[in-house]
């Protein structure tokens, strides 16, 4: 059983189709990135998964249960929306203690202490949250979301509105939590770099449909479409080298790339043979670099540079 199962999910608002036949799964322990432009329906999907909205058609299950009707199942789920779910007029400790009460946690003091230390807010624990910076609130929001040790946590744009330093801190925190707490993470984001760094699999949503759904390694070609960029000592040798490379049986394609050549290999282990063939033909090689497509390239390919919102 997967942590999240979505089959044929559709939903419209006022006759406008937001989701249309969306299907994907998230395995236990995965860090899953749900990508898409603004207005693509990412938050609507999360709200349906969390039981806050009803699906128009299709089925959704989280941990094998329907969160819309199963109050107890929600105790196994954590969530962080953009507003962090915190009261500005309460301290960090009081906010966490409140949620501990809602989750009927026994003796939560030690857990609260641990989490405040983990998110670096132990020394500000008794200050009102209203005095915190946006980044501090987000870190406290993450601590709140995992306070009750959920099996899966949904993070809706956790880096939104943060400066680069705070974004990195939040990103590191998600990785650390995923490792330490062994929980499934459903990350809703349009920060492609963030998703590529921390997610094991992604789904790209655009125009209400899933445009791509695979592991990050497969999507970026690191596994199925290995490629290398060969930089020659003399750029004028590119045409000759290209002629040699194109005769090699393990090369699927070769194109000029700056001072060198970008070669797509049909055999992932053929890079040494490629180097041997070029050196044997008398070409001087300055650098050979394994290359892969970035998630941004994949995203643009599926969504379009204009965003492609629904």
């Amino acid at each position: 059983m997967n942590a999240v199962e979505v089959r044929g999910l559709s939903r419209s608002f006022d006759g406008r189709e937001i989701l249309n036949g969306v299907s994907f799964t998230v395995g236990h322990g995965e860090v899953f990135g749900y990508l898409g432009p603004n207005g693509a329906g990412k938050t609507t999907t999360i709200r349906i998964l969390l039981g806050l909205l009803k699906p128009g058609a299709g089925e959704v299950q989280v941990l094998g249960r329907d969160l819309a009707t199963d109050d107890d199942a929600r105790a196994k789920v954590g969530v962080l929306f953009e507003n962090n779910g915190l009261s500005d007029r309460m301290s960090a400790t009081a906010n966490l203690a409140y949620y501990a009460g809602l989750y009927s946690m026994d003796e939560p003091a030690e857990r609260i202490d641990d989490l405040l230390a983990l998110v670096g807010l132990a020394d500000r624990r008794d200050d009102l949250v209203g005095t915190y910076s946006t980044g501090m609130k987000r870190r406290l929001g993450i601590a709140r979301a995992i306070l009750h040790r959920p099996e899966i946590v949904f993070l809706d744009e956790p880096s939104s509105g943060l400066d680069p330093g705070a974004q990195r801190m939040v990103r590191d925190l998600i990785v650390e939590l995923s490792r330490r707490e062994e929980m499934t993470v459903f990350l809703n984001s349009h920060h492609l770099d963030e998703v590529q760094r921390i997610c094991s699999s992604v789904a790209i949503l655009a125009g209400g449909r899933i445009r791509a759904f695979d592991s990050v390694a497969n999507l970026t070609g690191a596994r199925d479409r290995p490629a290398v960029t060969v930089t020659l000592a003399d750029p004028d040798d590119r045409a000759g080298a290209s002629g040699v490379i194109e005769t090699l049986p393990f090369v699927a394609g070769c194109e000029p790339d700056g001072r060198g050549l970008h070669c797509t290999l049909s055999d992932p282990g053929a890079t040494p043979d490629l180097i041997t063939a070029l050196v044997g033909a008398g070409f001087r090689i300055e650098e050979v670099r394994r290359s892969s497509r970035s998630l941004e390239e994949i995203y643009i390919e599926h969504v379009g540079s204009a965003g492609g919102g629904a």
Binding site: L50, G51, L52, L67, D71, D72, R74, A75, V77, V79, L80, F81, E82, N83, N84, G85, L86, S87, Y99, L102, Y103, S104
Partner: peptide, 14 residues
């Protein structure tokens, strides 16, 4: 207004 209610609705509290 501030959206906190959405988080509260995701807790096990009916």
């Amino acid at each position: 207004r501030d959206g906190t209610i959405e988080t509260l609705l995701c807790t096990p509290v009916s």
